[in-house]
Design a protein around this nucleic acid. Structure first.
Lengths: 205, 205
DNA sequence: CCGCGTGGTGACCACATGGTCACCATTGAT
DNA sequence: ATCAATGGTGACCATGTGGTCACCACGCGG
């Protein structure tokens, strides 16, 4: 919880601070990020930063709260309108998610780095707050679909989907850095590649 | 490359130092590991450590070299005797790999932590030395199998296998911490769970 | 013109880091 | 007994950390 003083800052300044902090955390992870760098980057003084936030951890979790809830808010309409057919449903959801990452590159990078956080202390706290949410996301995805055609246990299918989708997204986002494509072409490309992997999953190797 | 002085130490002392260093690196990752902790843990002085190794990075990569080549050496016989059938082949290889992790818990934890290293500088150097090897491992696995029955591209199938196997191994090793099973029972349990996931992959969801 | 409060500042603090180096104990050769 | 060499030591160094706090500029009510 940031002090009210921060929330009452003008929007431009708040944005500058949040962006600088997210960029630093995304690049170096929690422990190796430096509050000195952050204040230098956004042009405020050390004293100010620690009047706005209790400490480094407070700042970090404030950013996480913000970006997690913003993503949830942005994706909510897409989720509400998903198909019932499992394969369509997964495709639509994945496209919506990846589109958000592409449209919000900094926040996207920040979320990815947060999921990969190595500091065991901070990692435990992240899990405690949001741990279930990512696992639950896939369960929700499946719960909302008709599972008639499945030949295997719900839980196992869910995990396989999670592993393949996160692996695919990660590799897609990594490869993307080279190419310079419009958002539309990127989405097309994503769909094409994704469908190959979903085919493998649904039809078998 | 460690100085010869280190290599000429008696085995017991070398082992003490390597174990302390691996435990520290495995627990905290490269950057957050402290050479002070390491020397404290293995009972040598700071000066000695830096006579044995040029610097922290030198020590880190020496350990990686050691454990990577040790694992390769230990698994070589199992790999040589793998079946030609893809499903059997994958199962046999996975069992051999997981058995090694279980038989060498410290080295296993060290390798896992190394694969998850977040420091971008060190991560790049790890990739440069060993990057292809993990990706290649799966390609080798498939190249040595008869791929007659496959309905999809070799590359894509290979990636799906990689994502699912790494995901499954990670989750299996995480869950294991609770249970206290003998090595034999563990292997049995592993085989049982793995076969479920491979069924899903080969037959389709 | 004063006094007060508010928000912002950056020099400063205690601490931890990777790395160094003058020193010392032990040995073996002379 | 003396010297040289070897290997081990830990106080010490420069640097960087998260965090503090005495101070200051500014605006406003009197």
């Amino acid at each position: 919880m940031p002090e009210k003083v921060f929330l009452e800052l003008d929007e431009e300044k708040k944005e500058r601070i949040k962006e600088a902090a997210m960029a630093e955390f995304a690049e170096y992870g929690y422990t190796n990020s430096s509050t000195n760098n952050i204040v230098k980057e956004c042009g405020i003084s050390k004293g100010s930063l620690f009047k706005y936030f209790e400490n480094k951890e407070d700042l970090y979790f404030y950013l996480i709260d913000e970006v997690v809830s913003e993503m949830a808010r942005d994706l909510a309409p897409a989720i509400a309108g998903l198909s019932k057919d499992l394969k369509k449903r997964i495709t639509e959801y994945s496209v919506a998610e990846i589109s958000w990452y592409i449209a919000n590159p900094l926040k996207g990078k920040f979320m990815i780095s947060m999921a990969a956080e190595r500091d065991s202390d901070i990692y435990a706290k992240i899990i405690k707050r949001y741990g279930q949410s990512s696992d639950n996301a896939y369960l929700q995805l499946m719960r909302g679909a008709s599972l008639k055609g499945l030949h295997h246990g719900e839980k196992e299918v869910c995990e396989v989907l999670k592993w393949v989708l996160t692996g695919f997204n990660e590799s897609f986002l990594k490869d993307r850095s080279g190419k310079r494509l419009s958002a539309g072409r990127l989405k097309e490309e994503y769909l094409k590649q994704l469908s190959v992997y979903l085919d493998i999953l649904f039809k078998g190797l």
